[in-house]
């Protein structure tokens, strides 16, 4: 007996955003990344189109980070002290489709690197890899408001994805993106209304909607992951039902969140039942990441090469057409 598959029809789809610019487009990238365009819920390919599979961005920090030793061992201090080499390794050996460069050294509590130095780091990383870049400030608003415009100017035309614009601090970054032709990460604290408000505010400064990426703020497995899941689900449903202010592709910063979970860091001596930390942490990051694939994430930011490998495999599996 034939089974009739019920299909939902949506009136709209997720917007597409392209990051990076090739030589012809005014930049120096050898490849660009386009995300979004989905006309259905994640991976329901029998129902609609998913023209662009989710992508992995790997995190690179502009100073040797205080990460778990098992994670650092994957790269080695030599690489970790040189963002350009680090980025190159991520692309060449791990297949990163984007580099997520965090300018942590600009933090006034740390090295307090100058805006010029930060811009120089960005230029070096751009020179080392051909993939597009996401550049993230240090998280201190006053400092980022000086650093990011400088970065935007130094990389004018490269169509970077710059982060992050927040409800209380979006104007400087948005203006920099406008002037120097970059896209912006609009971050909201697991709140669909603030998410939408921020997108409207940014758009009102005349930055086109196809240059905004939503960061809904994610939580790691075991740390409120379900809250983000349901917010992302609502964002996607909003997009499919025609809400242009929720239709932007979504970035999920799994790297930071998964790696601050206790489960990713605690040693086996402390919790013998949990198994070896080195394996467990990889699984923690991979499990968090695949969850957000299912929730509708378009750009997944990750750290561990082995976790990246697992998640890339998951993406390939999920992208096999399942048309009935």
């Amino acid at each position: 007996m034939p089974v009739e598959i019920q299909k939902e029809r949506y009136t709209s789809k997720v917007a597409t955003v392209t990051i990076g610019a090739t030589k012809e487009q005014g930049g120096t990238r050898t490849s660009v990344v386009t995300v979004g365009g989905d006309s259905t819920l994640p991976f329901l390919q029998f129902e609609g189109e998913i023209p662009n599979p989710p992508v992995i961005a790997m995190e690179v920090v502009d100073r040797n980070p205080d990460w778990n030793l098992s994670l650092k061992a994957e790269f080695g201090d030599d690489i970790l002290s040189d963002p350009a080499k680090w980025a190159k390794k991520c692309v060449d050996e791990c297949g990163a489709q984007l580099i997520y460069l965090r300018l942590q050294s600009a933090d006034p509590e740390l090295e307090n690197s100058s805006p010029e130095k930060c811009a120089e780091t960005v230029r070096k990383v751009l020179g080392a890899v051909g993939v597009p870049l996401i550049v993230q400030g240090c998280g201190v608003d006053e400092k980022d408001n000086v650093v990011m415009p400088m970065v935007a100017e130094a990389a004018a035309g490269e169509n970077l994805l710059l982060g992050t614009a927040e409800q209380d601090n979006y104007k400087t970054l948005t203006a920099a993106c406008m002037v120097h032709k970059h896209s912006v990460v609009a971050s909201s604290p697991i709140d669909i209304n603030i998410c939408k408000q921020l997108n409207i505010l940014i758009n009102e400064m005349n930055l086109p909607l196809d240059r905004i990426i939503i960061d809904p703020s994610v939580g790691a497995l075991g740390y409120g992951i379900e809250y983000t899941y349901s917010i992302m689900e609502r964002i996607r449903l909003g997009a499919l039902q025609g809400d242009r202010m929720l239709a932007m592709p979504v970035i999920c910063n799994v790297a930071y969140e998964a790696w601050r979970a206790k489960e990713a860091n605690a040693g086996e001596d402390e919790f013998p039942g949990w198994g070896p930390q080195a394996e467990r942490s990889v699984l923690w990051e991979a499990a968090t990441a695949t969850n957000f694939l299912q929730a509708g994430g378009h750009i997944i930011v990750m750290r561990h090469p082995k976790a990246v490998k697992l998640v890339k495999k998951a993406i390939d599996d999920l992208m096999v057409p399942n048309k009935y």
Binding site: N193, K196, Q197, I200, E204, D243, M245
Partner: peptide, 20 residues
């Protein structure tokens, strides 16, 4: 209520006459 905590509203389609 949450969607209305904005000028005018986060659902702009409810306020078609409001200048953008």
């Amino acid at each position: 209520f949450m969607s209305a905590l904005f000028l005018p509203h986060t659902d702009m389609s409810l306020f078609p006459s409001v200048r953008r």
